[in-house]
Amino acid sequence: MRTFYFDHAATTPMHPDVAAAMLGIMTGAAGNASSMHAFGRAAKQQLNRSRDRISAALGCKPAELLFTSGGTESDNAALIGAARAQRKRRKNHIITSAGEHHAVLHTCEWLSKEEGFELTVLPVDRTGRTSPEQVKEAMTEKTGLVSIMYGNNEVGTVQPIDAIGQAVKAGGALFHVDAVQALGCLETPLRDLPVDLMSFSAHKINGPQGVGALYAAAGTPLEAVQHGGSQERKRRAGTENIAGIAGFAEAVDICVNERKTKQPFLDGLRKRWIELLKEHAGVPVIVNGDPERYLPHIANVSLIGLDTETILMNLDMEGIAASSGSACTSGALERSHVLRAMGLADEQIQSAVRFSFGLGNTLEELEEASQKIGTIARRIRNNY
């Protein structure tokens, strides 16, 4: 059976050049970057080269980039480390939005419950957008940290990061941005953005799983969350994943070099997919998210009258990988907190599916997959 992978927002296939870069290190001589001998120095040189490549692509200084195990750790390190540092400055108020990834929302809730921080969770509008004006109004003299994502992982809405960052700076707080989905699709010129902390992940850009990075602007107060060694300038203890980081650097190079052609191609796939669904699904199709400011690889659509879980099971049986954009807990589908935060009708929330595109996808396979979805939709309707 032919398969169709339309879940690139969850994880992406590794680029062959990334795999080759990693294999060369994994099959070479061993070396710990903290060791003083020649093998350790070689590993350290490889680590430094990778850091230089990624920081150059992101527009920051190498010393401002620390490596982690992925986006979730980067978010945790930024939020917990910055919040604790700001509390020492008598700033114990955190602001985030209801549309954030759980790596941010749950961490902020934990800081509020377990460490006594004041937490304000701002609403989003029906497109998933956070208003800079609401951020400004929510800020007080006690606000130490604001966290708003760059591009939403479920509906693709791109936030007005520059305007929000300006408001945060004017209020004297730190600004953290989860850019895990945005990397590779949007430009991230860190030297020009009003951002103090930004999270990244390699496996969203055809790099390896288990590797991420956190940008921390020079001078940003940040307490270490992980202890036990002096790696990453004492900000993140633990032996660095040299092969994974090298793969990350290769993936960043590729996505930067190909962004000008990749972005319009992905946007073309997204637009054509929506057209095909409206043509073949046989039910009303509603596109969720901002109609103008969106990540080009994510299409969150509601197939009105069909149930999300039923759709996903049938898609899987036909070899089509898609997602609800939310977590599965004990085998039961958890309805999207993002769509609920957007205030959408229940029929939209209960019929929403996220399709996301990337390396390997073609217009031809979209045509074939859309025919299968038409068959699936008819089968589901006939069984109701």
Rank of each mutant, 00 (worst) to 15 (best):
V287A: 09
S336A: 03
A352C: 04
G325L: 10
A299Y: 10
L312T: 00
N241S: 08
P284S: 15
D290F: 07
E347C: 04
I245N: 07
A345G: 15
I298C: 03
T261H: 10
S336C: 05
M313V: 05
S324A: 12
K271G: 15
I304P: 01
S324I: 07
E232I: 03
A251K: 15
L306H: 04
F248W: 03
E318C: 05
T239V: 11
R354Y: 01
M317L: 15
H297A: 01
D346L: 07
C328E: 15
D316G: 05
T310R: 12
S326N: 07
N288Q: 07
L359P: 02
L333W: 00
S302E: 02
A299T: 14
K271N: 14
G244Y: 02
A321L: 02
D267L: 04
K278W: 01
E334I: 06
P284A: 14
E275C: 06
I311T: 01
G244W: 05
E364T: 11
V283D: 14
I311C: 09
S302I: 03
K271A: 05
L295Y: 15
A249T: 06
I304E: 09
I274Q: 15
Q348A: 06
T362H: 05
M317W: 13
I242F: 08
R340N: 04
C328D: 06
L295Q: 07
A322E: 00
S302F: 02
L344E: 03
I311N: 01
M313H: 08
H337M: 06
K262H: 09
M342N: 14
G360S: 08
R335T: 10
T329L: 15
E292I: 12
I320K: 00
R233N: 05
L306V: 12
M317Y: 09
A249Y: 09
E250A: 13
G325K: 00
W273E: 07
K271H: 11
E309N: 01
E318K: 11
N257H: 15
A249C: 10
N288A: 12
R235S: 03
A322H: 00
E250P: 07
T239C: 01
E258H: 07
G238N: 02
H280Q: 11
L339R: 01
A251T: 10
N300E: 10
G238P: 01
L295K: 08
C255Q: 10
L303I: 11
P296C: 11
T308H: 00
L315S: 03
S324D: 14
H337P: 10
Q263E: 14
V285L: 02
E318W: 02
R236L: 15
T310F: 01
A299F: 13
W273L: 14
G289F: 07
E365H: 03
L269V: 12
C255G: 03
V353Q: 08
A341T: 04
G358D: 06
P296D: 11
L303M: 07
E364L: 13
G305L: 14
L276D: 06
A281F: 12
D267H: 01
